[in-house]
Design a protein around this nucleic acid. Sequence first.
DNA 1: TCTTTACTCAAGG
DNA 2: CCTTGAGTAAAGA
Length: 108
Amino acid sequence: MQSQYNMTTDFTAQCYVLIKQIPEGRVTSYKEIAKALNSRAYRAVGSAMAKNKDLITIPCHRVVKSDGKVGGYALGTETKIALLEKEGVKIKDKEVQDFDTLLFRFET
DNA sequence: TCTTTACTCAAGG
DNA sequence: CCTTGAGTAAAGA
């Protein structure tokens, strides 16, 4: 995409920027993030999150797996689910309900 | 450089 | 349903 602005930003930082754009009550998948970065580094996204400590500035709990499963979270999957449900996201057995509707897609 | 990882997809059982 | 293997990029040993 050779973005509008310089791509000097790190891959990890790019992930954070995208995640911060997710509105409450919505979620996105690791794949969507990777795709938004014109990459296939699904794992790198999760890996970056795992190291991330800025749970306040970066709502990584809004990032779930592509198949609707919640995925992991630094504070535990249960915590992640609790946060999402507070924002209006229904979750059943670690799976996001109406995932396709709630999925926030970035511009392609 | 090799291994592991908050991942994804396809194929085989 | 399950497990493997391949693909992929970053962090740690």
